[in-house]
Every structure is written in structure tokens, then in C-alpha cells.
Design a binder for these strands. Sequence first.
DNA 1: GAAATGCCCCTTTTT
DNA 2: GGGGCATTTC
Length: 808
Amino acid sequence: MKTELFPHADSARGSALKVERASVTDPLPDKSVPVPSLSLGEKARRAVQPQVPYLTGLNLEQRRAVETLEGPLLVLAGAGTGKTRVLTTRIAHLIATGRAFPSQILAVTFTNKAAREMKERITALVGAVAEGMPWLGTFHAIGTKILRRHAELVGLKSDFAILDTDDQIRLLKQIIRAENLDDKRWPARQLAHLIDSWKNRALTPDKVSAGEAQGFANGRGAALYKLYQERLKVLNAVDFGDLLVETIRLFRENPDVLARYQDRFRYILVDEYQDTNVAQYLWLRLLAQGRQNLCCVGDDDQSIYGWRGAEVDNILRFEHDFPGAAVVRLERNYRSTAHILAAASHLIAHNEDRLGKTLHTDGAAGEPVAITGAWDSEEEARQIGEVIETLQAQAHPLSQIAVLVRISAQMREIEDRFVQLGLPYRVIGGPRFYERLEIRDALAYFRCVVSQADDLAFERIFNTPKRGLGDATLQILHAYARHAGIPLMQAARALIETEELKPKQRSTLRDLLAAFDRWSRQLETVPHTELAEIVLDESGYTTMWQNDRSPEAGGRLDNLKELIRTLEEFPDLQAFLEHVSLVMDASEGDSHERVSLMTLHAAKGLEFDTVFLPGWEEGLFPNQRALDEQGRAGLEEERRLAYVGLTRARKSARIMFASNRRIHGLWNATAPSRFIDELPEAHVEVKEAPAAFSYGNYGRSRFDQGSGAFGSTYNTPGWTRARQNSGPGFGAPTGAPPGGRRGGGHGHTIEGEIVARAAASSAFRAGDRVFHQKFGPGTVATADGNKLTIDFDKAGRKAVIDSFVKPA
DNA sequence: GAAATGCCCCTTTTT
DNA sequence: GGGGCATTTC
């Protein structure tokens, strides 16, 4: 069977598929399965050694997914069906059979964690060869790598900086203000989201439709986007979205470059394909066009990143986009008990937009999914604590228990309870290490040491710790930097030579620049970890926190120490900064004997014996906002999230809801989630709350009302949110000029900067009458380049920079 | 220029 | 319930 000589022929595929699905319960792999399109030599080799060790233990479907090597392949891998195993084995297989060198395989994951795990598992299979898999990584990491090699082709230098969300928003705010828009009414954060969503769809500024640009600043969204991109180029920086969009542009504009990568990547593998967005899809398609050896693994039922631009459509349309694609379904679940699997399957079956899979297991029935109500969210937290303590008493390892919440705001109450009980726990994906204030400050220092052109970093630490340099000083620096088209630090260098700044600021700035010069020189001579400490100490940053009396100061100092320790793992500061900008998650602490607490999103790909699922209430889960903004699609994504939550559990899943929950500090009555009604009765069990927590009749009556839900007459709860999101003031006055950028402007335009740069030598000579904003009218005494000495009528003789004076 | 106070936004999820 | 931001006050 399965002599698939023509992997692209549909008829052959169809029959192979039927055979396999019919024999799905047969656990014995067919030893005589030949690999498609092998060379004769290889066939002979395999005949001698038919059972390659790494292939043993795969079921038929998995094996087919591993061995269908040529042509496009979609592997629909349900939860717990051995997806990662298939991917890693497939790579091992490619290497072991000599079809490709590790460096010729492109393997893309969505998260760094997944990439790390895959690398480890491949190494386990084929040995250290996997170390040489330079193209295994996230979309963004690989995009960065490619972009650095060809930076000049897209108008960058190869040492471009990668901005994080924070930098991005600060930059956008500057642009919004420079355009004389009210940054209160048009928040930079909103524009950042908008630009992100455009980049997710690979839309460059000129491709943004007028309709979409309409929503922001009366149609100036696209223009602002354009300014932002121009500004990024000047700063030699990219944001996250650019790592993909710019790579696509690179490929499109340089077919020769693209051809080289198409040629290099003999086999392409993609993990979590359901999470890809349009840009990622285009990126993949460009690369796969050459050899067509694209293998995408995913599960449409676990697509939970739609809000971030992921297109379930990518996976739904795969066969259409890649004609002749083979499809393998992995439906045999090795993780959960039959009850849990049945509950999850039944729930997800309520979705309409899905390719459809039926998971099955040979495992035990186990215990039904438990459903428990609580009077309020505090009681819910107490119940979780209570049950966990019971489990703990029964020697259930805490590391095998997880609490999965819909939104991170739910965590606080649960954490509080755990702290009270002294229950060890860890929060996964919580406030990210590299996003902490003190870490970002420290990184900004390092960035400035490495590159004195990093304006955003310089701005950040310019007056941190407080050194008496305020907004006024910064404005002057900015003004000059913009005029001259130079970075802020360079502008500062010029300004300390003149008298634009007050003496105090001037000398402070001089000291700061001298310090940076010193540190930059030490890059060559001092080990980087040592240098990092020197920078933090000499800048006064460490001292600042040591003198801080606030309770968190100690923790911040610890974090800084941790940062230095992490630094040791990298050869130099540059490498470390590169890592940080792409990998925002720090090394996860030990998972020993701690309960894990995380959001449902963070839980994807993980599994635990016992899983608590609190907060299954209308409005919270499904989340009202998802419903309001995305309608049925939003609901379906929420349902997939519920499905992901349930399928994390191996042995025990406990769904919980509270009748009252505090939202924004106010108590609200809540109704049980509709998802609870969608569970199959045969596989769930409604449990009473532990007696100690049944708070008399109030709770009971509310609860009973809610639990009517288990009957068949559950309708939309009387909980319809009246709040209509009718944003204020969208009907802007019609008098505004249509989309046109304000003429004249403020000398902040890129063009302006370029012009200013070109005319670097001064337009003034001795004797000219000039006017200075601060010092008033005066006469030029001497002119040295752009540095002038002027005798002011009132202020006396001052050294100034020419861009601050106008001819009078 | 810096600290203190007061106001307003928000809260889904994250590479 | 809280954090960011602007205004106020020193």
C-alpha cells in the first residue's frame, strides 16, 4: 500500500487517505511503508534497515505526516495528537535521509519557546547536528536575520535597532504632536494598533485604503503611518511588523535575493499555522514558491490570535492556495481522558467555521469535567485554594496543576489567595521581565553605549536618574537635531559648545556625554558584564534605586542583578540586545512544585494533570469585547479558547464561575457562560461548592438562577450590555481639508531634515543682523561653520548654533 | 526643574 | 483600583 510515486496526484492521495482512516485504530506501524520518491540507492538502504529508530512509535497518520516529504502538505493536528513530535521527527528524517542539510531547512515557529523546544527535541533525535539549524526560529527572528544581511536594499543599515511597543508609541506620539494633532484625542497607542494591523496584512502606507485611514485623525492615519516609516528609516530602526513587511518588500524588489533563499530552503516547515497572519502567509508563500516543499502544521480549532491579525483562513484555504496539497489529519489524542476529550469536542462542534476533526482516544474515561459555581470571585479563589490543598494532601504534584484564566486581571485575586495559603505558584507570561521599568532603563543605557545614534534610548535615560535635565533642554536638543538631521547625542555634543543651554544643564550634559564616550571606549577593553555594571553604577542608576524608599526598589535592584547575570550568556552587549529585542520572555524559573497560573492564551501548547478554569461567565468568557467587535467570529474564537483550555487537562478539568465579580473595582452580577451549556451532560458533573464556602442563601439563590442554564431553556441572560460603543465626535466637521497634510509644517519633515543636512555650513556671516528666539535681536560677530558668536542687543555676547537664529 | 495633586483612561489576549 | 499624564505649586 501507499506507493505514492506521484505525491501531487489527487487520486493517489485520496485512496491513501481512505486506507489510513479506515485503519486508524491499528496501532502497529506498517513496517513495509516505503518513502515516496526516494532515490533507488536510498530505497535499497532503507530495505536493509527498514525500521529507522526515530520512526518507531509513530502511528500511521503521524508517520504519513513525517514521510510525505515532497510538495505542499497540511497536517491538521488536533490537541494532544503529537504535533511537535511529528514536526521534529520530520526534520530528523530530512536530515537523516540526507535530503537536506540542517542549514537547508527552514522551520518557523510562532513563539521562542516553541523554537527552543523544537531545537532540543531535534537534538535528542539526531544529535548535535541540530545545532547547525540556523533557520529554526520565529518568523520575527528569521526575518531579522534575513533583513540584517540585506539591510541596505531596504534603506537600512545592518545594525538597525528593533523597537518595542514602548519605543513605537513614544515615537508615534512625537509624530502626532509634530503634526499639531491633539495626542489626547488621537492617542498614539491607538495609532500603533492601527499601524500594527496594517502591517499584519502587509499593507504599506500607500496601500492603506482611504476608508481605513478615515478612522484616525480625520483620515490622516495613512499619512501618519508614512511619516512614521520615514522616521524609522532616519533612526535606522524597524518595529516588529517591519521584520516581516520589510522582508517581503526585500524579496519582491530583489528577485535575485529571493531566488537565493528559495534555492537554499529545500524544505519549509511551519508550526501553528493557524496563527499566521497575512504578512506571514505572503512571506511563506514567496519562499515556498520555488520548491513547493511546504509543510504546515496547525489546528484550526486552536486559532486564538485572530485579534492580533491571525487569519484562520490561511489554514482553511491551504488546499486552495497550494494546489495538489496533501492533507493529513492527526486525530488520535494521547493526552486527555475520554470525558475531557468528549466535553471539548462537543463544545467546539458548536463552531461553524472549521475544517472538522474528531478526536478520539484509547485512554480511560477518567472523571467527568467538574463544574462549580461560587457566590463571588473571592469565593471562587478560595475554592481553588481549597481543592489544591486537598490535592496536595494526596501527593498530587503542584507542578501538574494549572489555573487558566481569560484575562490577567483575574489573576490578582487568585494570587492573593495563594499567598495567604502559602501555596507556591508561578505566573507564566506575566509582566515580562524585559518590559519592567528598570530593565528597560538599563537596556536604554546599553543601547546608547553601543550606538550613540539611538535617539529613543537616549531620550529615555537622558534624565534618569534625575540630573536636572528637563523637558526644556530636551526640546532644544530635539530642535537642533531635527534641523541638522543628526542624532540627539550628536546634537548635544554641539550644544555643549555654545550658550543655548543654561550653564548647569550644559555641564551636566557634558559630563553625561563624556561618560558615554568612556563607556563606548570600554566596549573594546572591558568584559561586557563588567561594563554593564560600570555603566549602571557610574550613571547613578543603581544609586537611584538604592536611595529609593518605595517597597519595590529592592526587587528592582534584584532584577538588575538578574539582568547582569543573563548577560553572561552572551558574547557581547550587541548580541544580548539583539536577543532581548526579539525574545521578550526571560528564562522561566523552576517549575518544581509550584502551581502554574496563566492566561488561556499562554497555556496553548502546555499540558497539566489538573486544570482549573475559573471565570466562565458571560461577558468575561466569552469576552464581551470580543463579541462586540467581532460578532460571531469573535464568539467562535472565544469558544476555541475554551477548547484550548479544556484540552490542556490530562486527567481533571474543573470549570468554575462566580455569580458576582468585581469589574473596575465595582461588583457586578454575572451569569454563567453559554459555553457551560454547550458541554455534553454525559461528560460533566455539576459539583457543589465545598460546604465551608456556601455563603447562605444569597449565594445559593443567585447560583440556582444561573444553573438553570443546565436545562434546555437557557436564553441570553438578562445581562445584555447596554453600553453602546458610540465613540464621541466621529462626525467631525466637514470643513477639514481632505486628507491633505498641512502645508508649511514645522520643519519636522524628513525632507526638511535632508535639506538642513545638505546645508550644514552656515548661511550667516559676520555683521549679519539676526533674531534669536531666546536672546532677541543681535549682530553676528563671528561664524565658524554652524557655530556663531553673536552680540545680542540685550543679552550680550553668546555662542549659539545657527539653526536657532533667523535673519532679522 | 521637580514634587504633589488631580483627572481620565482603561482592561483580552502578545511575537 | 491603579497607572499614566497634565496641571499646579514650590
